[in-house]
């Protein structure tokens, strides 16, 4: 039977401010993309899932068991990459991974082999003996990622793991994640929508702490059909139009300037786009404002 992680009516309040309200969805093996604007509550959701803070209400069930009652058993299953880079400057990359291995309660033998494996996976083998203090931002991010994948946990919770990586590294790591996710649950929060588009089985859209949509990328794209359109005109015309749609994207094409907007229903004079819709368009449509997903 495949593993299942159920989130039910999860709520989190910071004082009187509600960061997460009544969130429900079920994760299954494969990558689930988590999209949301800054401050939408992505990190909050992830911290609740790793039992880092107290929740205000709701439950999180692993194959039917509440994770709070599982305690250390639950954390054994989880690999987590926090958003803030928390790494000790004085540790070398290898030592840090060994340390994480010890913290994860791995067998000594496994720690060594898996560390080397992970260093290879994030392409840091030749820097493993260096202190993390001397690493670049992207390298740190990769150490962090390696540490969360160490021990091949059943559930991977990754909070913007690809932030600050160069394109090549991003693709490498994306592939690694996809590979890992074949029989594991991966929740991946990011602002780089194309990452999710490539590997996600499902996408969770949240806005202001509320769930907007939880669906396959394909279904999301279908839903967006007819809600994305383009104005075509001279530069000045397009600039004038953009005042109305600040989130619109301007591009120059052979037939003049184009402003691509998301709106439902599309305004007059706007030509609906049909062929090259992307998840980015879906984000434009739902992550800001108060449009409902149907």
């Amino acid at each position: 039977m495949a593993n299942k992680l159920e989130i039910r009516h999860l709520t989190k309040k910071y004082g009187s401010f509600t960061a997460l309200s009544d969130m429900s969805f079920t994760l299954e093996p494969g990558v689930t993309g988590l999209l949301g604007a800054n401050g939408a509550g992505k990190s909050t959701l992830m911290k609740l899932m790793t039992d880092h803070m107290k929740r205000t209400g709701g439950e999180i069930l692993w194959n039917g068991t509440e994770i709070l009652t599982m305690g250390a058993k639950w954390r054994e299953l989880v690999g987590y990459t926090p958003q803030l880079q928390g790494l000790y400057d004085e540790f070398t990359a290898r030592r840090f991974l060994y340390y994480m291995g010890a913290l994860k309660g791995m067998k000594r033998r496994d720690i060594k082999t898996e560390t080397e494996e992970m260093l290879e996976a994030v392409n840091l083998s030749q820097h493993a003996h260096r202190k993390i203090g001397t690493f670049s931002g992207g390298m740190r991010q990769r150490v962090m990622l390696a540490s969360s994948m160490l021990g091949k946990p059943q559930v991977l919770i990754l909070d913007e793991p690809t932030a600050g990586l160069d394109p090549e590294e991003r693709i490498r790591i994306r592939n690694d994640i996809a590979e890992l996710a074949r029989d594991r649950i991966v929740l991946l929060a990011t602002h780089v929508v194309s990452d999710i588009a490539c590997i996600a089985k499902k996408v969770l859209l949240i806005r202001g702490g509320e769930r907007i949509a939880f669906d396959t990328p394909h279904a999301l794209l279908e839903n967006a059909e007819g809600k994305i359109g383009e104005f075509v005109g001279t530069y000045d015309e397009i600039r004038a139009k953009q005042a109305e749609y600040p989130a619109g994207e301007i591009a120059e094409r052979r037939d003049g300037f184009v402003l691509r907007i998301a709106d439902d229903p599309l305004p007059e004079g706007c030509v609906p786009v049909t062929d090259n819709l992307t998840l980015e368009d879906v984000c434009h449509l739902y992550l800001k404002g108060n449009r409902q997903y149907v």
């Binding site: 790793t50 880092h52 954390r75 987590y80 928390g86």
Partner: peptide, 22 residues
């Protein structure tokens, strides 16, 4: 304070032995 300084508390606490054992 060393852990606080580098903000690793969150990462460590998410591991199996990152609370009581540590």
């Amino acid at each position: 304070a060393y852990d606080n300084q580098y903000d690793t508390e969150m990462l460590l606490r998410a591991t199996k032995r990152g609370r009581g054992h540590r």
